[in-house]
């Protein structure tokens, strides 16, 4: 059993249906029914960084999430669930993220890329010479104008190329987090969630 966080800012139906297809049992948690910290946590979501931090603050989830992540409970973040882990974001300067991964969320450079947001399928692979080179590679679905930029390159789990390499996923101790949407990325995306579940939640 895992805890699924509904932070109140975005539709989480697609991740629920994905977990159901994979037959992974889950329990809904939110500001009223806070995640316990005893079970692995999945935090998905589409939305803006500022609005998400505000939602998390208002619902009382913010401090609980931070303490759960710091306690070593397995955590899977998707999209906004990745971005809130960082110190801050260029999307909402002045607002603080959870700060459990040192670094910032930055915008794609409009001078370099032809389209913002990036929408569609991009190929992800672990950085060469990283400790993650055994991880599976494939195409996944992105919808993002911003991407993470961790201070420590050793935390980069996956990279992709969008007129230059960018960090597509991070891994640090109990934290796994994807900028892309595995729940919308066909069989390969479902495989990534299954792997996380097998590694951390069984």
């Amino acid at each position: 059993m895992i805890d699924l966080v509904d932070y109140g800012g975005g539709n989480i139906g697609s991740i629920q249906r994905c977990l159901e297809r994979l037959q992974i049992p889950y329990q809904m948690t939110d500001g009223n029914a806070l995640p316990s910290g005893d079970r692995p946590l999945v935090f998905p979501g589409v939305g803006a960084f500022g609005a998400s931090i505000n939602h998390l603050t208002q619902s009382g989830l913010l401090p609980r999430l931070k303490s759960i992540v710091q306690s070593g409970t397995p955590y899977l973040g998707i999209c906004i669930g990745l971005q809130v882990l960082f110190d801050s974001s260029e999307e909402a300067e002045g607002l603080k993220g959870l700060g459990v991964i040192p670094g910032k969320v930055v915008k794609f450079d409009a001078k370099k890329v032809s389209k913002i947001p990036q929408i569609g399928w991009n190929h992800i692979a672990p950085p060469t010479n990283s400790t993650f080179t055994e991880e599976p590679t494939g195409h996944v679905y992105f919808v993002n104008s911003f991407h993470p930029s961790p201070e420590d390159p050793a935390m980069v789990l996956y990279e992709a190329n969008y007129s230059g390499q960018f960090c597509a996923a991070v891994k640090h101790q109990n934290i796994t987090a994807f900028q892309f949407h595995p729940e919308k990325s066909g069989p390969f995306g479902h495989q990534l969630i299954q792997r996380w579940h097998n590694n951390y939640a069984l």
Partner: peptide, 8 residues
């Protein structure tokens, strides 16, 4: 690289 999408 971002793939070009084919959409039925």
């Amino acid at each position: 690289m971002l793939s070009k999408r084919i959409i039925p």
